[in-house]
Write a protein that binds this DNA or RNA. Structure first.
Length: 491
RNA sequence: CGGGAUGUAGCGCAGCCCGGUAGCGCGCCUCGUUCGGGACGAGGAGGCCGCAGGUUCAAAUCCUGUCAUCCCGACCA
């Protein structure tokens, strides 16, 4: 029914792009690759932020803020890190503009060249570790558990709203520890935080795993990740947690005095999740009618639409609506009463469906007369007329049910879209016809991974945590393999 | 950076081949009737046709250049 929204089955990419715009989540900016996040889209991000932020605080982290600009020389201190990010950095070279002498507007003042050029952070490891050097002297200063909410810039070639933009919002945690074990534990803990958030809040099932060398974060020893599966059968990395070993400590000379009096490099982690999660949320659940939002992240959980007859709203109807409104609010439910007389009910129904509001209540003269109300759920598109008595309890339960239902639906989709391949032919066939996650044996080399990528476009998304070990042969080289890994075409 | 396409009203498009001074749908504004799944009628506002040159009596239309955007590849959360 939604006007002009392409069907997922016919044009998935077009469906996504249109949905983001039509549901008022975001739009393109005058600057290529950047986006304007509109109020409704930003509200979802705020929900993500507050949910994650609480989990970070609950695990002992505190927020801080480090600067947007990083001296160019910092980036080059960690060899792998610079190699990973150098190609996509925005660089600030001047600090002043002036009026053009030929009267053609404004130009960069060539006199105002910076002594040392600044890069706009693509991530903050370097500036943070250079700061940690001063903050950490003794084992008493550890662990240092810090997170920051910030924007970062990575000059991407091809961008898509939320999924990949040149500037994006994220959080990045940066921690320092006395021992390797403690840092690894932290890395895994934060991966689990992301997984729990994705599943409990976003209703998006994820695989937890470790990245292969070629997919690893530049500068990390190990990258842990959560991988979600989108409805078109492509994988989305939804959060990463890196064990940095002592790489950054060595690059920035961050040492601490141990209890025994020796001087040692600290062990680091970093972990991040971005506005990409909003893209994942959209692609995980939404349908041809528009967004489907999990109640825990929906900016509006319930909308009440009055059906007006004749001149406007009857006082009785208004009274009933307000009663329900208050009862719902007392239950902690976010509810909107849309009493605008500038739009017809049918228009509003379609609008809130497009925007993914989980529950809609419609209230008309008939209901006022009979003490009933129409309750409709977004996830199943079903509706029924029920007694208005105790509606708040019913809505509360329904929100929980919807949250659970869309998770189960996404989980079933992932299970149905996960296949095993025992040969290259089988592997290719699955990717071409079904998509999704493909479990297959791999000989453990980057060369083989690269060849498979070249042939099929699929990459190793992760080596699952707690993977079952089983002897087998690599689907490409036939060399021995100890376990199957997860392949997929990815965003 | 290669290959392809497109720039005309807020959005989506037609007009261009065959030059004659701009049109359709949606949206917007006013009034009225409507309101239980994107209402209807009547009236109205809005565009130096991406930009710069050229050809011509005359250019959205032909020619040259330029800029921008989108799609497909190489890179990536």
């Amino acid at each position: 029914m939604s006007k002009g929204l392409p069907k997922r089955s016919e044009d998935y990419a077009g469906w996504y792009n249109e949905l983001v715009k039509k549901a008022d989540l975001a739009e393109n900016s005058p600057v290529r690759g950047c986006m304007v996040i509109k109020p409704y889209g930003y509200s979802i991000w705020e929900k993500i932020q507050s949910g994650l932020d609480k989990m970070f605080k609950d695990t002992g982290h505190t927020n801080a803020y480090f600067p947007l600009f990083i001296p160019k020389s910092y980036l080059s201190k960690e060899a792998d890190h610079v190699e990973g990010f150098a190609k996509e950095c925005a660089v600030v070279t001047h600090y002043r503009l002036k009026n053009d002498e030929n009267g053609k507007g404004i130009v960069v003042d060539p006199e105002a060249r910076l002594e040392e050029e600044l890069i706009v952070r693509p991530t903050s490891e370097t500036v943070i570790w250079s700061t940690y050097k001063n903050w950490i002297q003794s084992y008493r200063d550890l662990p240092l558990l810090i997170n920051q909410w910030a924007n970062v810039v990575r000059w991407e070639m091809r961008t898509r709203l939320f999924l990949r933009t040149a500037e994006f919002l994220w959080q990045e945690g940066h921690t320092a520890h006395a021992t390797r074990e403690e840092a690894v534990e932290e890395t895994i803990r934060m991966m689990n935080v992301y997984a729990e958030f994705a599943e409990q809040h976003m209703a998006m099932p994820v695989l937890k795993g470790v990245k292969t060398e070629s997919e690893r974060f530049a500068g990390a020893v190990d990258t842990y990740c959560i991988e979600a599966l989108m409805q078109d059968g492509r994988a989305l990395q939804a959060g990463t947690s890196h064990f940095l070993g002592q790489n950054f400590a060595k690059a920035f000379d961050v040492k601490f005095a141990t209890q025994e009096g020796s001087l040692e490099y600290v062990w680091g982690t970093s972990w991040g999740a971005s506005t990409r999660l909003v893209g994942g949320l959209i692609m995980a659940h939404s349908d041809d009618n528009g967004l489907v939002l999990p109640p825990r992240l929906a900016p509006i959980q319930v909308v009440i639409v009055p059906i007006m007859k004749g001149k406007g709203m009857e006082p009785e109807m208004l009274e009933m609506a307000n009663k329900i409104l208050n009862a719902l609010r007392e239950k902690g439910i976010t509810v909107k009463f849309d009493d605008r007389d500038t739009h017809k009910p049918g228009w509003k129904f379609a609008e809130y469906e497009l925007k993914g509001v989980p529950v809609r209540l419609a209230l008309g003269p008939r209901d006022v007369e009979q003490g009933t109300i129409e309750i409709a759920r977004r996830d199943t598109l079903t509706k029924e007329t029920v007694s208005a008595e105790g509606i708040e309890k019913r809505v509360k339960d329904l929100l929980d049910e919807i949250q659970n239902n869309i998770y189960q639906k996404a989980l079933k989709f992932r299970e149905d879209s996960t296949h095993e391949a025992n040969s290259l032919e089988e592997f290719t066939e699955i990717l071409e016809n079904k998509g999704g996650f493909v479990k297959a044996h791999w000989d453990g080399t980057a060369e083989t991974e690269a060849k498979i990528k070249e042939m099929t476009k699929a990459t190793i998304r992760c080596i699952p945590i707690d993977n079952t070990l089983e002897e087998g042969k690599c689907i490409l080289t036939g060399k021995p393999s100890k376990q199957k890994v997860i392949f997929a075409k990815a965003y």
